[in-house]
């Protein structure tokens, strides 16, 4: 059960129960739908870009605790960052989930997501929102992505 506590840490449980930035952004200029068909996680990520700065980022949707908490933590981490900084953070998150060396300064609070590395079947729950925000920023129209 110790791996479980590692996965379902207090921070994860808190963000699952009270997800931050769980709202629509009316003036969003980028958005994408993310779908994890196997387990039914579904979310929409809204981004308001000013130049290359993520002025605001939010999400709505439903899914397991890992996908919800990851999305919530992501919005907190990316708000106010440039696209380049966001990319660097995402790379660190991805490394932490696959058990690679990470830069703790860049990763910060997101380190709690690294618990999924012991649960390969759950990695895609944790990465869904990150893939979705990536797709949103890259595209200038509404786009749907799937983790399958």
């Amino acid at each position: 059960m110790s791996d479980l506590r590692e996965l379902y840490q207090q921070v994860i449980m808190d963000h699952n129960k009270r997800p931050r930035n769980f709202r629509e952004i009316e003036q969003a200029n980028h958005l994408a739908h993310g779908n994890n068909p196997l387990c039914g996680d579904k979310l929409v990520v809204y981004v308001k870009l000013e130049g290359d700065v993520i002025e605001d980022v939010s999400f709505k949707g439903s899914g397991c605790a890992i996908s919800m908490a990851s999305a919530s933590l992501m919005t907190e981490a990316l708000k106010g960052k440039t696209i380049e900084e966001a990319q660097a953070i995402y790379e660190q998150v991805h490394k932490s989930m696959t058990g690679e060396e990470t830069d703790r300064n860049l990763l910060g609070k997101l380190e709690v997501l690294s618990g999924v590395k012991e649960f390969p079947a759950r990695v895609k729950c944790a990465t869904l929102s990150w893939h979705t925000v990536h797709a949103a920023i890259d595209s200038d129209h509404d786009i749907s992505i799937s983790t399958e």
């Binding site: 059960m1 791996d3 479980l4 996965l7 379902y8 387990c39 039914g40 996680d41 899914g63 397991c64 605790a65 890992i66 649960f119 079947a121 759950r122 729950c125």
Partner: peptide, 14 residues
């Protein structure tokens, strides 16, 4: 209050 996917992982741990 618990998504089925979380249920599956927690069950598997037991």
């Amino acid at each position: 209050g618990v998504h089925p996917h979380d249920v599956g992982t927690i069950f598997d741990q037991q």
